[in-house]
Nucleic acid binder design. Structure first.
Lengths: 237, 237
DNA sequence: AAACGCGATTGACCCAGATCAATCCTGGCG
DNA sequence: CGCCAGGATTGATCTGGGTCAATCGCGTTT
C-alpha cells in the first residue's frame, strides 16, 4: 500500500511466447487473431502490497494475471475484510455489469499483469464470439469455486477450513508449478484468516496443531504436507 | 422429495407472452429468433419439495425459472447443507463446465421451469452471440452476488446476516412483485439457516429479537419490515 | 552487534452461537 | 371436534473460536 511505482513496459511483448498463452482468455484466439490482440495489451508491473484496483472504482481496464499472486477482497465499513479469492497467472479480472469493480485487488509479492483498456477490448470481443465463450467459461469456473467456498465459509469447522485451503491451494499451484507436497504460501496468516472467515490466531493455532500431529511441517514461506491423505480426511471433502 | 409427479405440458406455450420474457436469457432475442427459440423449450412443473436436479447429475438440460422459488444447495458427506442461493423467475440454471451440475436444486412450493435440452440449446447459442452475451451477463451478476454472500458468511454476525437476508430478499422480490415492506418468506427457517450459515434456533431467536425491538413483525408466511431503516443499519451494509 | 519492527505464535479468558431438550403453534384429518 | 405431525419457538447449557495480551523469531537498520 506504499506510494506505488507502477512500471509500464514501453515496448510490446509477444503473446506467442506469453507464459499464460494456453491457459488465459487468449487461449481461444488463433495465431492471426493473437497478432491483432497483441496491440491491445500492455504489461504492467506492481510491487508487493500495491493496489491494482479498488472496489467501487470505475472499471477502465481488464487484466490478465501473468506473474505473481493477488488477493481479491471486500471490506465492510468497519474494516472487517473478506478475501474472496486469490488470483494467479492465467486469471482474468475486471468483468462486471455495473461498470465498477466489485472487489479490490492487491499484489502479494511482485505481480505482472497484461492490461487491456475497456473500450478497445470490448470492441475486439464483439467480433470474436469464441473469446466471449472463453470469458464465459472462466466466469462459470469461478462461480463454481465461489459456491464451494460458500460451503467452506458457512458450514465447515476451523480445522476443515484450513485443511481444505491447503489442498485447494496446492491444487491451484499444480497447473502452474507441477505436483508437490511442499506448498508455498506467499500470503500472510492474516490473508489466510480473511479468506477462511477465521482470525489470525485460529489459523496459527491450527497450523501448529497439524504440525504437532505430524500432518504438516511448517517451513519458511509455506508448509509441507507430510501426510496428504490425513489432510484430505480432515478437509472432509 | 416425495416420488415426483412431474407434469410436462404437451403443447407449446408462446414465448411472446411469457412472464419472464424481458428479464430472462430470452430478453436478448428478437421476435424472429424468439419464434425459433419457442420450439426448443418445454414447460415442466414441479410440486413442493421435488428435486429438479441433483449435484453431480449429468447435465442434460438447462432451465429458465418461470414461476415459483427453488433452493440451490450443496451437501457435505455428513449431511451438513449450505444453500448457495434461491432461484426466482428469470433465473437461468444449468451452466457448468464439467458437464455435471455443481449443486442441487429443489422446489419450494410449486415451480414451473422452461427446460431446454442441452444439445439443441448449445447449437442455438452457437449462432447467437448476443444470447451468449446475455448468459455471460447473468453469470457475472451471480458471481458478484456470490462474492457478497461470501462476505456475509465469513465476516458478519448472526444479527447482520438475518437483517441482510431480509433486505436482500426484499430487493429480489422488488423486480417481481413491486416494492413492499411486507416480505413473503416461502422458504423454511431451516432453509434460511442453511443459507446464512447459522442454525435454525439462531434464526428463530434473531427474528424474535427483531420483533421484540419493534423492527419487524413476524406474520404468517413472512415478515413485515416495521422499521426498514433500522434493519439497514443492522445489516451494516 | 544491539536495537527495532513486524509478522507469527502462544496463553488465558470470554462469549456468540451451537447443542440439547422441551414445549408451542397450526393446519390437516379421522 | 379432538388428535396428530411437523415446523417454529423458547429455555438451559456448552463450546469452538474469538478477544486480549504477551512473547517469540528474524530480518533490517544503524
Amino acid at each position: 500500500m506504499k506510494p506505488s511505482v507502477v512500471t509500464i513496459e514501453p515496448n510490446g511483448h509477444f503473446c506467442s511466447d506469453c507464459a499464460v498463452r494456453t491457459s488465459a482468455v487468449c487461449s481461444s484466439l488463433n495465431a492471426a487473431e493473437l497478432r491483432e490482440f497483441e496491440h491491445l495489451g500492455r504489461r504492467v508491473h506492481f510491487s508487493s502490497g500495491e493496489t491494482v484496483f479498488s472496489e467501487e472504482d470505475i472499471t477502465t481496464s481488464f487484466c490478465n494475471v501473468l506473474e505473481g499472486v493477488m488477493r481479491l477482497y471486500k471490506l465492510l465499513p468497519d474494516g472487517r475484510r473478506q478475501i474472496v479469492g486469490f488470483a494467479l497467472p492465467g486469471d482474468f479480472l475486471g468483468m462486471n455489469l455495473s461498470g465498477r469493480h466489485n472487489f479490490s485487488a492487491d499484489a502479494i509479492g511482485a505481480v505482472t499483469v497484461c492490461q487491456f483498456a475497456k473500450a478497445p477490448f470490448g470492441r475486439f470481443i464483439e467480433e470474436r464470439p469464441q473469446l466471449l465463450r472463453r470469458i464465459n467459461e472462466l466466469a462459470i469456473r469461478e462461480l463454481s469455486q465461489a459456491r464451494d467456498h460458500m460451503v467452506l465459509l458457512g458450514r465447515r469447522s476451523a480445522d476443515e477450513k484450513v485443511a481444505a485451503f491447503l489442498l485447494g491451494w496446492r491444487e491451484r499451484l499444480l497447473a502452474l508449478k507441477g505436483a508437490s507436497d511442499t506448498v508455498p504460501l506467499p500470503m500472510s496468516r492474516q490473508d489466510i484468516a480473511d479468506y477462511l472467515g477465521l482470525t489470525i490466531e485460529t489459523v496459527s493455532r491450527t497450523f501448529t496443531k497439524l504440525e504437532r500431529h505430524g500432518v504438516i511441517a511448517i517451513i519458511h514461506g509455506g508448509i509441507s504436507l507430510l501426510d496428504p491423505a490425513r489432510v484430505e480426511a480432515l478437509a472432509a471433502a
